[in-house]
Design a protein around this nucleic acid. Structure first.
Length: 360
DNA sequence: CGCGTTTGACCTGCGC
DNA sequence: GCGCAGGTCAAACGCG
């Protein structure tokens, strides 16, 4: 899938940097010594500093390599799980063809998931897996009805994004082409709700509702229904069609499953049709924080924990893990510093190779 | 002129 | 059955 094409582990990131690092500075030191005999101490200090720096960078590279390996492994495992999950859901959805016209319409989405959403009238949607939170009755018939509806319901993702409050366009740039087909003022929110359909592919079943938050009008809440059956339409240019890669540091939240909230700093595009996971993608984060979060996410089995409202079982959810993995991979591949580190690693390997073969 | 947006009318589901 | 609210349709309109 996309991930494997984005992160090709065949780059052999697991190169052993130490020999390279041990070799290169030595050469440099020797040549320096021949030229600058009178300043041995200064050169030595500089060399030590460089060695330390190189060791630090190489250890970072090593960490990144390990993380990538883990991420790739997790992704493959989770992807398999997801495919399994999807196939079972498809089977259920096929059995639950609704009698009502509108419901039947939403069956057209082949990727129904067992998710029920209870909109509690603000940015946060409580997503109750398996059963609606408002139906307290134990009536079998109604519960069966609910379950059927849940299967019928398309995959829903809610994305809230902090924007300029003066911007009334209700446009959420997420990398896909949307055609507006309606606008409506809802009862509980004076701000109009805009309805969009994916216009890139005529067969794409994805719909999007965009409405400003009643509490904070600078926050735009986009509700995605369904799953795109085509790749993202726009190129990931800086400040362009990416929902989150804005230079203004817009704040973006994805809210859904089981009322959970995770905090993952991210500068990448959210896949609106992805698993319905809650993320708090707060843009301005320090590198240290990001690294910490990435470590947590990349090694979910290492006892690290992500702040969630429901505890550890949440981070073990395959949907969550897959989503995190995708986000991290995209983030990594778009991160200039990561690219620089990768370039340094590759050039280091080339240098090593050249040294071994006697060139230079 | 074609395409996307706007907007009022209409449709449908649901609660009472 | 009725009314309300959300969702959709489609003609009118605007823009490049």
């Amino acid at each position: 899938m996309e991930f494997t094409s984005l992160v090709d582990t065949s780059l052999d990131l697991s190169f052993r940097p130490r020999p390279v690092l041990d070799k290169l500075p030595k050469q440099e030191v020797q040549s320096d010594f021949t030229g600058l005999r009178g300043d041995n101490m200064g050169v030595k200090n500089e060399t030590v500093d460089l060695l330390e720096e190189l060791n630090r960078v190489s250890s970072e590279n090593k960490k990144l390599t390990e993380m990538l390996t883990v991420v790739c492994e997790n992704y493959n495992v989770l992807r398999n799980q997801m495919m399994e999950y999807m196939s079972t859901q498809n089977g259920l959805a096929d059995d639950s063809a609704g009698s009502r016209k509108r419901k039947a319409e939403s069956i057209s989405n082949p990727n129904n998931s067992n998710i029920n959403i209870n909109n509690n009238n603000n940015n946060n949607l409580d997503v109750v897996p398996g059963r609606s939170s408002e139906s307290s009755s134990s009536d079998e018939e109604s519960s069966c009805k609910k379950l059927r509806e849940e299967h019928i319901k398309a995959k829903v993702t809610v994305v809230s994004m902090k924007t300029d409050a003066s911007d009334t366009s209700l446009i959420v740039k997420d990398g896909y082409q949307w055609r507006k087909y309606g606008q409506k003022v809802t009862r509980d929110n004076p701000c109009p709700r805009a309805y969009f359909r994916c216009s890139f592919a005529p067969t794409c079943p994805v719909k999007k509702k965009v409405q400003r938050s009643i509490e904070d009008q600078s926050i735009v809440v986009a509700t995605y229904e369904g799953e795109h059956n085509h790749p993202m339409t726009s190129k990931p240019e800086a400040g362009g069609a990416n929902t989150t890669s804005t230079s203004t540091g817009s704040r973006l939240n994805v809210t859904t499953i089981a009322g959970t909230t995770a905090s993952v700093p991210c500068s990448t595009t959210l896949n609106p049709s992805g698993p319905t996971i809650t993320l708090d993608l707060t843009a301005p984060k320090t590198v240290e924080k990001r690294d910490m979060k990435m470590n947590q996410s990349a090694s979910p089995t290492c006892g690290n924990s992500i702040h969630t409202s429901t505890g550890v079982e949440y981070q073990n959810r395959p949907e969550f893990q897959q989503f995190l993995i995708e986000q991290m991979a995209t983030s990594l591949t778009k991160d200039p510093s990561f690219k620089a580190a990768l370039a340094a690693a590759i050039s280091g390997k080339i240098l090593q190779h050249n040294n071994q073969t006697g060139r230079w």
